[in-house]
Design a protein around this nucleic acid. Structure first.
Lengths: 160, 160
DNA sequence: TCAAAACAGTTTCCTAGTAAACAATTTCAT
DNA sequence: ATGAAATTGTTTACTAGGAAACTGTTTTGA
């Protein structure tokens, strides 16, 4: 993106952003946009969206997790989780079980195809997580994550 | 919780999040959600959304800014900016001007009503920015903003 | 015991934001 | 000059995600 991007950049640089360069809200939005762009560059070809990606990983780590707990953990609303799960079900990657001890709830687990899918793309997943961090040093990365957790009130209970 | 508590239920605290607690992507999403929640608590009563808030401020700071430059600065797509601007126009807060020197473009500025609106709610705006930061110390805040800028490739190395 | 309340998930409808095709204007290469 | 290409913004059609009302199930309390 040579000459034209340069011109755009110049125009953009002239904008007075003094309200925004110091706004945590705006900067987290920038970070979010960056994350999405990187995600689609790295993993878009598998037809997986960011929310789906973390949903799948979390079910894999926590077989039998209840759907509502999953939604709460990922900070999405139950209504949206219903849609995510149905899409995974249609693809044959996730299995829904209604347990006898509480027939209101839904317990989730990966199917064999779901586990195969993760395994098949594990390299790309790992590469993606690495590329997300590429612009920071390791020390900066540790600090950024700690501050993001503190800012968002995320109690990082268990150290692993 | 008598006899049937044999099956250990996976509650939120017990969820294995080892893929996510170290994912910058997930943590930026948490920060984004936190920011939105705080925004609606502080400013929701004025019928203003986060994107609208920064749009209005930026036009106020940069009278005559072109619509496309504004979109690029805020990292939203031109198609969406068209809708945001139309909403402001309908409310009588923003004015669109087609300049003679390039009749493809649109130049934006606040109306008197727009300036009055900002002035009227300036206290709430300031209070909101402060409450966004409340969970961090001043030093942590400076570090967080610096790292977010670096992570998201936000050039703006002009100190103000 | 049994109606009322609470809970877990779903459905319906709505908003924020994007992608792609489009129209109008300007620029660029002959 | 002039047709091709690039640009600026808009329209249309779509996806991610949320709010509120709803269904079915479990718990609670008199």
């Amino acid at each position: 993106m040579p000459a034209s991007a340069l011109k755009e950049q110049l125009t953009e640089d002239a904008v007075d952003m003094s309200d925004l360069t110091n706004s945590v809200g705006f900067l987290t939005r920038l970070a979010q946009v960056k994350t999405y762009e990187t995600f689609f560059e790295d993993l878009g070809e598998y037809g997986l969206r960011p929310g789906e990606y973390s949903t799948l990983l979390l079910i894999g780590r926590n077989p039998g997790i209840r759907q509502g707990v999953l939604a709460q953990t990922l900070r999405v609303k139950p209504a949206h989780m219903t849609k995510l799960i149905r899409a995974f079900e249609d693809r044959g990657h996730v299995e829904r079980t209604i347990p006898d001890h509480d027939r209101r709830s839904v317990e989730l687990s990966l199917t064999q195809a779901g586990r195969d899918f993760i395994e098949k793309h594990r390299t790309a997943f790992t590469k993606h997580e690495a590329s997300l961090k590429s612009s920071l040093t390791e020390a900066e990365l540790v600090t950024l994550k700690r501050l993001l957790r503190k800012y968002s009130g995320f109690a990082a209970e268990e150290e692993n």
